[in-house]
Design a binder for these strands. Structure first.
Lengths: 189, 189
DNA sequence: TCTATCATGTAACCAGTTACATGATTTT
DNA sequence: AAAATCATGTAACTGGTTACATGATAGA
């Protein structure tokens, strides 16, 4: 079985450095994931550790105890895990996969809203995107001193957000200035 | 409870036209969804119908029988369903939501791959994106006679794909022509 | 008539989320 | 010492997917 979940990849990637227990990994991830590039839910972590153990990509290699806190099971990456990690990373980088975006779905159903309202809603979207773009740029500007490789995922989001804003803005003016077409009009008397 | 799933929205949107039974709706969707803008799994449909019924957005309004085939339950949109549909559509259009993209996650972990390999993998991604872009353009070109509003979701995908290609291509040349930085190099002896 | 495909759904499984639990430590 | 927060997890629920089932029709 292959790693299906990005969080699983994260676990493998972190364990590449050194063995860890789930809670510690979660803490590290929360800090290193400030821009929220990877969906992280505390409880999902334990599930992922379990899955990866079942598939032989990691294995428990002992327990630690600090004070009187519950025991923490420490996991170590296996050779199979290391192989799986690089293999899956190669796939993810080299091969685009179709993502099902909410906005794309909404556009496919756009006829259910009246044309003039759509124009206004798209305007609001442009504003929201503009704000998002500002935040991303600020985030990047604040980190110019960092190793640039740590920022590529944010640069990617920025590039997509800018492209979306341009598209939405164009679409909005198109709809505002051209006739909606008989079909669409007929649906909204 | 609100509709959480795009497929739920689709059901509401289709029932806006006329009452239908799940299988018929599925057939229509498969045709009208050639560009795969909305994830559709046959069995998910029945779950969605059930959920929407439970939430009072649709209701069964009788059964038909054709020949000796099993009975088909026909569902009708309720007033609450109609309201929910437009409300949710407004939200989807006006408010961008964060999507967790696979490639973004991969970029966040890119350090686990050696720099020179990344350059090559990004090159392969650019090629794949170029091909995808070609297909999308062809799809649009073949449908110039259609009401343009039917194509916006594909135009959106095209815009994003082009932006991603540009970004990836730039990133690739950046990595190929500048020093990877000490951190990254140190991870790959 | 045999086989493939359509029509229509159910059931079993699995992943991921929310909510809960419980002792330890820190703050007030 | 009471309240809040941290540390560490388990459990229950839910949504969605894959796989299975079964009769009907159409094609060979």
């Amino acid at each position: 079985m292959a790693v299906r979940n990005p969080l699983g990849l994260v676990v493998l990637a972190f364990l590449l450095q050194r063995p860890m227990h789930p809670y510690e990994l979660g803490k590290l991830l929360k800090e290193r994931n400030k821009q929220d590039s990877i969906r992280y839910r505390h409880a999902s972590l334990y599930m992922v550790f379990e899955q990866l153990t079942r598939d032989g990509f990691i294995e428990p290699t002992g327990t630690q105890r600090v004070g009187a806190l519950p025991e923490r099971t420490v996991y170590t990456l296996t050779d199979a895990g290391r192989a799986e990690l690089t293999e899956e990373m190669r796939r993810l980088v080299a091969e685009p996969v179709k993502e099902y975006l909410k906005f794309e779905a909404a556009l496919a159903l756009i006829l259910v809203l009246p044309p003039d309202e759509v124009v206004e809603l798209l305007g609001r979207r442009v504003e929201a995107l503009t704000e998002l773009i500002g935040e991303l740029r600020q985030y990047l500007a604040d980190r110019l001193h960092l190793d640039q490789i740590h920022l590529v995922e944010t640069e990617y989001r920025l590039a997509l957000a800018e492209a979306e804003r341009t598209f939405v803005d164009n679409l909005r003016t198109r709809l505002a200035t051209t006739d909606p077409g008989d079909l669409w009009k007929s649906l909204h008397p």
